[in-house]
């Protein structure tokens, strides 16, 4: 079976009269397997949306090739678009229609039933807002409606461009559950995000993108492992003598100030057991390396989402 997505050496340069040339996508290649949850992580302007738009078939690249479910997204064919669901970064709705009318229109275009439309509205938690005009929905509700429209055609492959951008923490968690469920049913999901923890929580594999290029692709765990970074263990100061701190550090880095002692250890289990037996667990915080450290490592730049 073909891969869900195969992209080779995509390039896209925007030419504006005032802005000059912007290399939005600069030699991007990646492959997404069927059923995979694939994330593209990167700061503003990294080229995530442009890449997605090219893969979806909204933009033509200057060069490079795209295979989507084994076919070319260009020219458009109903056979292909019927199998793909898309949520664009900017929500796009028919003016003056209610949420229900909106999704029913999309359902009709995808040849899906009204029941399916109602089901999707329910799924994204908009059932009680069904009769509200789209423009009167809050930003997060619009986002969810747009996701419902992406799912209404029962797609095999779903593109979600920053789906959680306008959501409150609770809605974000709900949407995470929803995205996991979508993926668990065997649909391939491609997600872009600014949020490290989102990519970490959801994705099978993550591509780290910066300045138009994909810097690295790996699973979140693989990234962290490959980083080989120490775990930072923090406890409140004043519970350990200076000698004991030195002893516990066992030659690894440790910093202490008036408020806290921070160990950087590669054997957190041993350190934590020792701290527990000393009864020195007040103010305990354990921070393992995460994608933020990975981003710093991969791009040489501090993460500033």
């Amino acid at each position: 079976m073909d891969a869900a997505i195969e992209v080779a050496d995509l390039r896209k340069t925007y030419r504006g009269r005032r802005t000059g040339e912007i290399r939005a996508v600069d030699g991007v290649s990646f492959r997404v397997e069927r059923g995979e949850f694939f994330g593209i992580l990167g700061p503003n302007g990294a080229g995530k949306t442009t890449t997605l738009e090219i893969v979806e078939g909204l933009r033509r690249p200057d060069s490079g090739t795209v295979r989507l479910l084994g076919a070319s997204p260009w020219p458009h064919s109903p056979e292909l678009t019927g199998r793909v669901g898309v949520q664009l970064q900017a929500s796009a709705f028919f003016e003056f229609l209610s949420a229900k009318e909106q999704i029913e229109t999309f359902a009709e275009l995808y040849g899906a039933t009204r029941d399916r439309a109602a089901e999707m509205l329910e799924l994204v938690g908009l059932a009680e807002h069904a009769n509200v005009r789209c423009e009167k929905l809050s930003g997060g509700q619009q986002q969810r409606l747009s996701i419902a429209c992406a799912l209404v055609g029962d797609p095999e492959l779903v593109f979600l461009d920053e789906p959680t951008a306008a959501l409150d923490p609770q809605a974000r968690r709900n949407l995470w559950d929803l995205m996991r469920a979508i993926n668990a049913e065997g649909r391939t999901v491609v997600l872009t995000t600014h949020y490290m923890e989102e990519a970490e929580a959801l994705c099978d594999r993550v591509a780290i993108m910066d300045a138009g290029r994909i810097k690295a692709v790996d699973s979140p765990a693989g990234f962290v492992k490959g980083l080989d970074a120490p775990t930072r263990v923090t406890v409140a100061a004043g519970q350990l003598t200076d000698e004991r701190v030195k002893e516990l550090a066992a030659g690894e880095a440790v910093t202490a100030d008036g408020a806290a002692v921070v160990f950087e250890t590669r054997d957190p289990r041993k350190l934590l057991t020792a701290l527990a037996s000393d009864g020195a667990l007040e103010g305990l915080a354990v921070r393992t390396a995460n994608l933020e450290d990975v981003f710093l490592h991969v791009t040489g730049r501090e993460w500033r989402a």
């Binding site: 056979e79 019927g82 009709e108 275009l109 995808y110 040849g111 899906a112 039933t113 055609g153 029962d154």
Partner: peptide, 8 residues
Amino acid sequence: TPRARVGA
């Protein structure tokens, strides 16, 4: 819900 393939 039967799979929509080609759309309407």
